[in-house]
């Protein structure tokens, strides 16, 4: 089995969690990493700028119709981020899902449609249950599912909800996730 993309969902406590994982990835890390971090619609792009500064990989805000390639893509505030089947980004201002826009479930479910069993889904710290259904769908489509060990989460509710919703493949401490991602087999580009 090899993979073609990683999706990450994170809410309360996300800045620290992402800062633990993303900077650990090497400059040429082959898998695109797509992140939904819950935040207020009027939030600026501090998160993106900060992570980009701290990381070897390029971190940027996702843009509509942008082809998904190497690097880290952050969902902008105030929009749902979706993955189209042709592996470009879709945007919507559909109603909130799980009281969130962007919603983790929306990203995960559409990414699972686009990448099928070539997708890795990760649920990190957070204070609600967004992401559980999406992670379940990733698993159903044959993808790999990872949840941050709740006792290492600033806010354990979201990881716990995911662990309850499905039989996840790996539950691991926050500090181990980055190293694990580096070991993932990936599909060479044709």
């Amino acid at each position: 089995m090899s993979y073609e993309a990683i999706v990450i969902g994170v809410s309360a406590g996300g800045l620290n969690a992402l800062h633990t994982i993303i900077p650990e990835l090497p400059k040429e890390y082959p898998l695109p990493v797509i992140v939904v971090q819950h935040r207020l619609p009027e939030a600026d792009d501090f998160l993106t700028t900060y992570l980009d500064q701290e990381s070897k990989l390029h971190v940027k805000q996702a843009e509509p119709r942008e082809p998904i390639q190497q690097g880290v893509y952050i969902a902008p505030a105030g929009y749902h981020l979706l993955v189209e089947r042709d592996r470009t980004f879709g945007f919507s201002v559909d109603p909130k899902v799980n009281n969130a826009i962007p919603s983790i479930d929306v990203l995960f479910e559409t990414a699972a449609d686009a990448y099928q069993n070539k997708l890795v889904g990760i649920v990190l710290t957070g204070a609600n249950s967004d992401g559980s259904q999406g992670l379940k769908f990733i698993k159903k489509n044959g993808g790999l599912t990872i949840v941050q060990a709740p006792n290492t989460a600033e806010s354990p509710f979201m990881p716990k909800a995911a662990i309850e919703a499905l039989e996840v493949d790996h539950i691991m401490p926050l500090v181990d996730i980055g190293a694990f991602l580096k070991t993932l087999p990936y599909t060479e580009k044709a």
Binding site: H80, L82, V83, E84, R85, G90, S92, D94, V106, E109, T110, D113, A114
Partner: peptide, 9 residues
Amino acid sequence: YARASLERR
């Protein structure tokens, strides 16, 4: 229409 959001609906 862009497919992903349409499909979800």
